[in-house]
């Protein structure tokens, strides 16, 4: 039920983000969703792609610092209070979130929230127990 995410270390300077996306484009990688965390000096670009292995390999070949991390994708109806329901469950159960980002599915019916947890297995267990829809990796990669 877990999703593999790729993170790329980027210097905070013009062109560094463009370099990363160009490498992925040249390798025919399709980006499902992404998020950029930034500080004054550097940024971390986090991506869910259709082909984790290839993406990771081509980025490393171009000397970028890449890490693969496990995240959890949760589907919620795209309506007011959707994300709040999940957070309420997590909060009640003492699950800590490192970061999250979200996107809306093509159908427009549902939103998908990508979570990074300290302990993904414990989080998935809590989410499933409370009737949440946790999407498997394969489903996300091919959305």
């Amino acid at each position: 039920m877990k999703v593999e995410q790729i993170s790329i270390f980027l210097e905070n300077k013009p062109g560094s983000l463009e370099e990363a996306t160009r490498i992925l484009k040249d390798a025919g990688i399709n980006i499902r969703t992404l998020s950029l965390a930034d500080t004054s000096d550097f940024g971390i670009l986090r991506l869910i792609v259709n082909d984790v292995e290839t993406a990771s390999r081509v980025l490393k070949e171009q000397n970028l610092r890449v890490s693969r991390t496990t995240v959890v994708a949760v589907e919620v109806p795209d309506r007011p209070g959707g994300i709040h329901g999940i957070l309420e469950v997590l909060s009640k159960n003492g699950i800590n979130i490192e970061y999250l980002y979200a996107f809306v599915e093509k159908s427009g019916q549902n939103a998908v929230i990508i979570f990074r947890f300290d302990d993904p297995d414990a989080a998935i267990e809590v989410l499933l127990k409370n009737g949440m829809t946790v999407l498997p990796g394969a489903k996300i990669y091919s959305l």
Binding site: I44, R65, S67
Partner: peptide
């Protein structure tokens, strides 16, 4: 370094 980044992709670690 590879080692520093592969262990964590979080801003706080860096």
């Amino acid at each position: 370094s590879e080692r520093l980044f592969s262990n964590a992709d979080e801003v706080k670690v860096l």
